[in-house]
Design a protein around this nucleic acid. Structure first.
Length: 454
RNA sequence: GCGGGUGUCGUAUAGUGGCUAAUAUGCCAGCCUUCCAAGCUGGAGACGCGAGUUCGAUUCUCGCUACCCGCACCA
């Protein structure tokens, strides 16, 4: 068995060819950093989110699911620190490519009135005074570095109508913290979970669906007493890994990495990224952050509403601290695809297939008559197909060309089992079930099929 | 954002300043076929977008856009 290095382009090509993922706005030349999920991609994605939701929300007594609006009052983003941290005028050292705050460099150079300067003015002064970077190199143009997509609510364009597409789903949970307390009065610790879109105006979208401008997150905010944060942090870090294993990702490709202080988000006191061996290198797949009481405190202060939790035992009220395990859905899906993508040889022919776990496969089974021009086989196969479709859903029919080709087609989209109705079926009511990974066939009674494929 | 590369049927490739833009595979229709991309017949399908040069541009030039690689960024 020969095994070649799998590239991202191999995966992207298959995704396009077989209807998993397409370039966004493709017929108009595309839009950088956006991708559209096709019929098989969206099913695969849904299978992942279903497992996540069941695991972390439905099947737990301490979790509360929500689905907050993407558009939020701009005060949310001011309180969270995103507005302050996302709007810097930056200038690049043309040699080292390091970025610096333009206003800071100007102030350091003894320029007066920097705070009142526009972007263009700062740019002009840097060029006029020939201001260099701290390393003594020439600087590029001053640019607004804005990671949030700004938008406008309503028809009038004034300062109060500004809002942003959320850069993280987390704030939707923090602003609903009080609502959940008031409606459910949960015992602490408890958590909130949400799946939804988030948007970041990335400078350079890269690596297929890995770094994109519109993406989907599966996030948990778990509220704890500050004394016990570490124990919960470790627990959730492990839960994240367990989830990846449940998706069928190989453990040797999963690497937790402590995030050094200088690389942590403004809200984080401690973070561990879970990195994964993608075809383009070891990159961040999941994050787990200790957000302390940063967000609840900020919202308490700015909104004037209490974010305190009152323990039922009568002990002192406190603002809970937060452990945030976050899962990038598109990245998880890419990890699943890239570890499932397999090329090998079968009977001397190259074969491409997706070794997807059964519960993730977008199509559970394919049904074929051995021969298309034998009406009795086709009729029987249709009967089996209808039955499986009703019982399992996500079952396809294929009577094109010969069985060999159909098997390969099924393999390529990761169908775990391909059922073929042959002449023996008409005699004894058994069909052949061909396994995707081994290409082995077994005979199974039609009445046992549903059970076996489930 | 910087530098480099690439963009031709769904996919993978070929090719040309001028005739109907080729091949494989996939796809569609029909035939054939008793289990791993067999065969036959027919069919649909492409030069990323916009300018410029030119009698004529898919081909040359410029701009834009998208993707890939390296750097930087990634709250």
């Amino acid at each position: 068995m020969s095994k070649k290095e799998i590239s991202l382009e191999d995966i992207a090509s298959l995704c396009k060819r077989r209807g998993f993922i397409f370039q966004g706005s493709e017929i108009y030349g595309g839009l950088a950093g956006t991708w559209d999920y096709g019929p098989l991609g969206v099913q695969l994605k849904r299978n992942i989110t279903d497992l996540w939701w069941k695991t972390f929300v439905e099947n737990r007594a301490d979790m509360y699911g929500i689905d907050a609006a993407i558009l939020m009052n701009q005060k949310v983003w001011q309180a969270s620190g995103h507005v302050g941290g996302f709007h810097d005028p930056l200038v690049e050292d043309l040699k080292t490519k390091k970025r610096y705050r333009a206003d800071h460099l100007l102030e350091d150079a003894g320029i007066e009135g920097v705070t009142a300067m526009s972007l263009e003015q700062m740019d002009a002064v840097i060029k006029e005074k020939n201001i260099k970077s701290p390393d003594g190199n020439a600087l590029g143009d001053v640019r607004q570095f804005n990671m949030m997509f700004k938008t406008q609510i309503g028809a009038t364009d004034d300062a109060t109508s500004v809002s942003y597409l959320r850069p993280e789903t987390a704030q939707g949970m923090f602003v609903n913290f009080k609502n959940v307390i008031d409606s459910f009065y949960p015992d602490i610790p408890f958590g909130m979970g949400q799946i939804g879109k988030a948007f970041r105006n990335e400078i350079s979208p890269r690596d297929f669906i890995f770094r994109v401008r519109e993406f989907e997150q599966m996030e948990i905010e778990y509220f704890v007493h500050p004394d016990s944060w570490k124990e919960h942090f470790d627990y959730w870090l492990d839960q994240q890994k367990q989830f990846l294993l449940a998706l069928g990702l190989p453990p040797e490709k999963i690497h937790p990495v402590d995030v050094p202080k200088e690389d942590r988000a403004h809200y984080s006191k401690w973070s561990v990224d879970t990195e994964f061996d993608f075809p383009f290198g070891q990159k961040e797949l999941l994050g787990c952050a200790y957000r302390t009481d940063h967000d609840l405190n900020a919202h308490q202060k700015d909104s004037g509403k209490s974010m305190e939790y009152r323990p039922k035992d009568g002990s002192a009220p406190f603002v809970p601290h937060v452990i945030e395990p976050t899962f990038g859905l598109d990245r998880v899906l890419l990890a699943v695809l890239s570890s499932a993508y397999t090329e090998d040889e079968l009977n001397g022919e190259k074969r491409t297939y997706l070794k997807l776990a059964k519960h993730l496969a977008p199509v559970k089974a394919a049904v074929s008559p051995l021969l298309k021009n034998k009406p009795e086989l086709v009729a029987k196969a249709q009967e089996v197909y209808q039955m499986l479709q009703a019982n399992l859903g996500a079952v396809t029919w294929d009577d094109n060309s010969n069985v060999g080709k159909r098997y390969r087609r099924s393999d390529e989209i990761g169908v775990p089992a391909h059922i073929t109705i042959d002449f023996q079926t008409l005699e004894d009511g058994t069909v052949t079930v061909r396994d995707r990974d081994t290409a082995q066939q077994t005979r199974v009674k039609i009445e046992d099929l549903t059970q076996q494929l489930r």
